[in-house]
Design a protein around this nucleic acid. Structure first.
Length: 385
DNA sequence: CGTTTTTGACCTGCGC
DNA sequence: GCGCAGGTCAAAAACG
């Protein structure tokens, strides 16, 4: 870590301004032994080579740092060196102080990070407990009304995955395990929420996971929001009912990564960009990508926890609301349209707009099975990032 | 020259 | 079976 330009005395002096005579700085003394200093271009590649030269070639003085004015008092070498020593000592003390201050700051930040991290884990534990309680309440309810006709209005979840889906969705948003383990923040903790996961038969879970997508709605003028990953566009289509084309991207951060995303402007407000993610990265994510990935996968995990925990695949809206509340700062919309349930995270609203619409959606909004989107809407007050 | 984007063709699933 | 719409492929073009 350099503190400023220094002179490499092992190399020949560099004449920076190419002046015919080396006298750019006429100093206080006009005498024969006045010192001259080459003009220094601090922004050039040679900025670290500053030469101070005595016209009589008696001795060269090395200028450390940017104190170019020091050559003014070169008439008396002893005084000058004492002043220099004082200055250096002062500088050193300042730097040491600064260092100490930064160390303290660093410690404080570490503590803060640990605190936030602990809070996060505590919240997730709380969520797990709540979900477990809900689950128990649900199963008790079901026992009580085992002969009651429970409508399956929200999700048609079952192991009816077709072969093409198997092909394209080898992994899903919900499968939060990643190779690099960078998703552990949410995945490990979520997977430790044993209640819903253990009840669900693996087959049903897998079939569901392949189908769920996470859609992020954000206001952006750019054609694509930056999520930290590298994407390659592989197609573009005009979607029905939207004048803006839909673009298809796949992740190129690792060969064979199954993650795809669709980007399209929202038909109601074209300043809003809707990005739909599908699949799980099979490679470590850069830090800036982890936020988005963990958000989407965490939300999706919660969907799975809340939805497939019932034996018949029926999703309890209240359960879902509770599931999403702790982790989402924005509005979360669950679209029940087949064939893919889609979770929409609406980042276009200011945080802390809390409003929960319980179950207008318990009425049946699915028409003809597909392409009729009547989302079940939850508005939550929790934090996403 | 390798990588990315563009774009028309093709495939698949679903409703009628 | 046909048509429609969404999704993907792949050759050509563009780009760095």
């Amino acid at each position: 870590m350099g503190l400023g330009p220094t002179l490499d005395t092992s190399e020949p002096l560099v004449l920076l301004n190419q002046a015919p005579r080396w006298n750019p700085f006429a100093m206080a003394s006009d005498g024969p032994s006045r010192k001259v200093l080459a003009e220094m271009d601090l922004f050039s590649n040679h900025a670290n080579k500053v030469a101070v030269k005595n016209e009589n070639d008696d001795h060269d003085i090395i200028n450390m740092g940017l104190n170019l004015d020091r050559s003014i008092s070169m008439g008396d070498h002893e005084i000058s060196s004492t002043v220099d020593e004082n200055r250096t000592t002062n500088k050193l003390a300042k730097i040491q102080n600064e260092l100490q201050r930064m160390n303290l700051e660093n410690l404080k930040l570490k503590e803060r990070y640990l605190q936030v991290s602990n809070n996060y884990k505590a919240l997730q534990m709380q969520l797990g407990t709540i979900m477990q309680q809900q689950e128990q309440a649900l199963s008790i309810q079901k026992q009580d009304h085992s002969d009651a006709n429970v409508p399956r209005q929200l999700m048609e979840i079952g192991p009816n995955t077709t072969s093409s889906e198997e092909k394209t969705l080898s992994a899903s948003v919900l499968n939060t395990k990643t190779v690099g383990g960078e998703d552990t923040l949410d995945s490990d903790v979520w997977m430790s929420n044993k209640a819903p996961k253990l009840i669900v038969p693996e087959q049903t879970n897998e079939a569901t996971m392949r189908k769920v997508r996470v859609s992020v709605r954000a206001r952006s003028e750019a054609s694509m929001i930056s999520d930290g990953c590298q994407w390659r566009k592989y197609g573009q289509k005009m979607a029905k009912g939207n004048p803006c084309p839909r673009a298809y991207y796949r992740c190129t951060m690792a060969a064979g990564c199954p993650v795809r995303k669709q980007v399209q402007r929202w038909v109601d407000d074209q300043t809003i960009l809707v990005t739909t993610y599908e699949g799980t990265h099979t490679h470590p994510l850069p830090p800036e990508a982890v936020a988005m990935a963990s958000t989407t996968s965490a939300t999706a995990s919660m969907l799975v926890s809340g939805s497939v925990s019932s034996a018949d695949g029926f999703m309890n809206p209240n359960l879902l609301a509770q599931a999403i509340r702790p982790s989402s700062s924005s509005m979360a919309t669950i679209s029940a349209s087949a064939p893919f349930p889609t979770i929409t995270l609406d980042l276009t609203h200011p945080p802390n707009t809390s409003q929960f619409i319980p179950s207008a959606a318990t009425s049946n909004h699915i028409h003809n099975g597909r392409k009729r989107e009547q989302p079940y809407t939850l508005e939550t007050e929790s934090k996403l990032f």
